[in-house]
Amino acid sequence: MYVPKHFAADDDQLSGLLTGPLAGDLITPTPDGLQATLLPWLHLPDSDGGPGRLQGHLARNNPHWQLTPTGDSLVILKGPDAYISPSWYASKAEHGRVVPTWNYLICHVHGRLVVHDDVAWLDDLVRRLTDHHERLQPGGDHPWSVDDAPQRFVSGQLRAIVGVELIISRIEAKAKLSQNRPAADVLGVINGLTERGDLASARAVSAASTTRMRGDGR
């Protein structure tokens, strides 16, 4: 991934992607070409501070898991993204030398893909994956549990899926959130996104701006 220094994601931004509501594209090189599947994931960091692993599952009928990888697989995780209009920039009125752009937060996770076809492993994953995402739902006063469903039904569902685990070798993360713009332009972007109703992108730009000011000693 091309990551200019001023767009390199910091630890907080990366952590937010890996610990939040997590879904991303699994892309695997195979003899039949690239295979891609969008999956929910659960990140498990290593106890020694290493990058850890991503765990998920896909339908047993999906041929993706049956194809032998010819190299490392890739999971692409995305945060908020948005079109940025130059009409929001204060500098538009000053000199007019502005153009549109796209803001985004993205993470490329590389690693070796391992397939798990064990019911006990899958049962444990499904419970942890469900509990994680149920906790993150707004107003989740009554989170759903796997045990809320009949055991026979759950057993049938587990037989219909296959687990996948990405043993992470490296992570590349980029936060392109108007950090290269003057403070007045950044404020215009935050206001423009807020008025549009894209509060997630507005918060991301605001947080990146605050981090930049702390780094500049201001």
Rank of each mutant, 00 (worst) to 15 (best):
P138F: 12
G33C: 11
L177W: 13
D123R: 07
S87M: 10
D185A: 04
L44K: 06
P31A: 08
P182H: 03
A184S: 06
P143N: 01
G163N: 03
A175F: 15
E134K: 12
P80A: 07
R112V: 14
I171L: 09
L105C: 09
L18D: 08
N191Q: 13
E134L: 09
T194G: 09
D81S: 07
I171P: 00
A90I: 04
D81P: 15
A183L: 00
L26H: 09
V119K: 14
W65E: 10
I76G: 13
H95I: 05
W144M: 02
E172D: 14
T194N: 06
S87V: 15
R214A: 12
W102C: 13
Y2S: 07
H142R: 03
P69L: 06
G24L: 05
T130K: 14
E134I: 01
G16E: 15
I27G: 12
I171W: 10
G215I: 10
I168S: 07
R128V: 08
I190H: 05
T210S: 09
L166S: 05
L187S: 06
L67N: 02
V126Y: 05
G49M: 03
D148S: 06
S15Y: 15
A184M: 09
V109D: 04
R212Q: 11
A93T: 10
H132M: 03
H108R: 03
V75D: 12
I106C: 10
L44M: 03
A23V: 13
L125H: 05
Q137I: 10
L177Y: 11
S155Q: 01
P51R: 11
V99C: 11
T30W: 01
E94K: 02
D118V: 15
V98H: 02
H6C: 07
S87L: 10
S155C: 02
P31G: 13
L77P: 05
R196C: 08
A149C: 00
L14H: 00
A202V: 15
T194V: 08
H142F: 01
L17A: 00
S155T: 04
G215V: 04
P86K: 04
L74I: 14
D10E: 15
L34Q: 04
T68R: 07
G52E: 09
D131V: 02
G49I: 13
P80G: 02
D117P: 12
P63M: 07
A120F: 12
W121I: 00
Y104K: 09
N61Y: 09
